[in-house]
Deep mutational scan, measured.
Amino acid sequence: VRQEELAAARAALHDLMTGKRVATVQKDGRRVEFTATSVSDLKKYIAELEVQTGM
């Protein structure tokens, strides 16, 4: 499950970095929206997932 969450989070980051205004991911069973202003929060979430998956 964590691998899927990590892939979704990375895709969301890619979307935001390429101009999409809002990206949505499932985080702990709930839907979370990230915007360009919350990229740093999304990067932290990705880092947490990488630690949890041993990457």
Rank of each mutant, 00 (worst) to 15 (best):
D41I: 09
R31C: 12
R30C: 08
L16F: 02
V22S: 13
Y45P: 00
V1F: 14
V25P: 01
L49F: 02
S40A: 13
L42Y: 01
L42G: 00
V22E: 06
A36T: 10
R2M: 12
V22N: 06
T53I: 15
G54H: 10
R30M: 14
T37H: 12
V22I: 10
E4C: 12
K20V: 09
R31K: 11
G54A: 07
H14I: 10
E48P: 00
A36M: 15
R2I: 13
A47I: 09
D15Q: 13
L49I: 05
A36G: 06
R21N: 11
L16Y: 01
A12P: 00
E50T: 06
A7N: 12
Y45W: 15
T35H: 06
T53V: 15
A47R: 13
H14L: 10
L49T: 01
A11G: 06
T24R: 05
L49P: 00
A11H: 08
G29E: 04
Q3L: 13
Q52L: 15
T53P: 07
K27Y: 05
M17E: 08
V51S: 15
Q3F: 14
A23V: 15
V51E: 14
V32D: 03
Q3Y: 14
R2G: 11
A47M: 11
Q3P: 09
K44I: 09
R10F: 05
M55C: 11
R10T: 05
R10H: 06
K43A: 08
A8P: 01
T35P: 04
E48F: 14
V32M: 11
A12T: 02
R31Y: 14
Q26G: 05
D28E: 08
L16Q: 00
L6G: 01
K44G: 05
E4Q: 13
V39W: 05
Q26R: 08
V32K: 05
V22W: 06
Y45A: 02
D15F: 05
A9I: 04
K27V: 15
A9H: 03
T24H: 12
M17F: 05
F34L: 04
A9R: 01
F34Q: 01
G19V: 02
H14R: 12
Q26S: 10
M17R: 04
V25F: 03
K44D: 09
E33G: 03
A11T: 08
G29Q: 04
L49G: 01
T35M: 05
A23G: 05
V22P: 03
V25D: 02
T18K: 10
K44V: 08
M55N: 12
R30T: 09
G54I: 07
A9M: 07
T35I: 04
R30I: 13
K20F: 05
L42N: 00
T53G: 10
S40Q: 14
V51D: 12
R30S: 08
Q3W: 14
A8N: 09
I46E: 00
A7Y: 10
T35F: 09
L6V: 04
E5D: 08
A12K: 01
G19F: 02
F34E: 01
R31T: 14
M17Q: 08
E50M: 09
A11W: 04
G54D: 11
V32H: 07
E5Q: 12
K27N: 04
K43M: 14
V25Y: 01
A7G: 05
E5G: 05
S38Y: 03
K27I: 15
R10N: 05
R10M: 09
T24E: 09
A36N: 08
G29W: 01
A11S: 09
T18N: 14
V51N: 13
D41K: 08
A47F: 12
T18Y: 07
V25I: 15
D28S: 06
F34D: 01
T35R: 04
F34W: 05
A8L: 12
E48I: 09
R10S: 03
A36K: 10
L16W: 02
V1M: 12
L6S: 01
G29V: 02
A12F: 03
M17L: 13
Q52G: 09
A8C: 14
F34K: 01
Q52P: 06
M17T: 06
G54P: 04
H14K: 08
D28Y: 03
V25W: 02
E48K: 07
A11N: 09
L49K: 01
M17S: 05
A9C: 06
R2W: 14
D41T: 07
Q26P: 06
E4M: 15
V32A: 04
S38I: 04
A36R: 11
Q52T: 10
K43R: 13
L42E: 00
H14M: 10
E5L: 14
V32N: 03
K44S: 09
L16S: 00
T35G: 05
E5C: 10
T18S: 13
V25M: 05
E33R: 08
A23Q: 03
M55Y: 04
R21H: 11
M55T: 13
T24G: 06
I46H: 00
E33Q: 09
S38R: 06
L42R: 00
Q52C: 07
R2P: 14
K20L: 08
K44A: 15
L6P: 00
T35Q: 05
T35W: 07
D41M: 10
F34H: 02
A23N: 02
Q3A: 12
L49E: 00
D15R: 08
Y45E: 01
K20W: 03
S38W: 03
A9V: 03
L6R: 01
A12D: 01
L6M: 05
Q3G: 10
E33H: 07
G29A: 03
T53H: 10
A7C: 10
A9N: 01
D28V: 03
V22T: 13
T18I: 08
L42Q: 01
G29H: 04
Q26Y: 15
E48S: 08
A36I: 15
T35E: 05
R2V: 13
E4P: 07
Q26I: 15
K27S: 06
V1S: 14
M55S: 12
E33D: 08
V51G: 11
T24S: 12
R21G: 10
I46Q: 00
F34I: 04
D15E: 13
M17W: 04
E4R: 15
Q52Y: 10
E48W: 15
T24M: 10
Q52N: 11
E4L: 14
T37Y: 07
G19N: 04
R30Y: 09
G29D: 04
K27M: 15
E33V: 10
T53C: 09
A11Y: 04
A12W: 02
V32F: 13
T37G: 12
V22H: 07
D28Q: 06
E50K: 04
L49M: 05
K44W: 06
R2Y: 13
T37F: 08
Q3T: 12
R2N: 10
R21D: 12
E48H: 09
A8R: 11
M17I: 06
V51L: 14
G54N: 12
L16M: 03
R21K: 13
A7V: 10
V32R: 05
D28H: 05
V51T: 12
T37I: 09
T18L: 09
A36C: 14
A23W: 01
Y45L: 11
V32L: 11
T35N: 09
V32S: 03
D41G: 06
A47L: 13
E33Y: 12
E48V: 08
D15P: 00
A9E: 00
V32P: 02
M17A: 05
S38L: 06
M55L: 12
A8Q: 12
G54F: 05
E50F: 05
R31P: 14
E48L: 10
D41S: 08
T24V: 15
V39Y: 04
T53A: 15
I46M: 02
M55E: 12
R10V: 07
T35L: 06
R2A: 15
A36F: 12
E48A: 08
A7F: 11
V22L: 08
V32G: 03
E4D: 12
E50A: 06
T37V: 09
R10E: 03
V51Y: 14
V25A: 04
A7E: 10
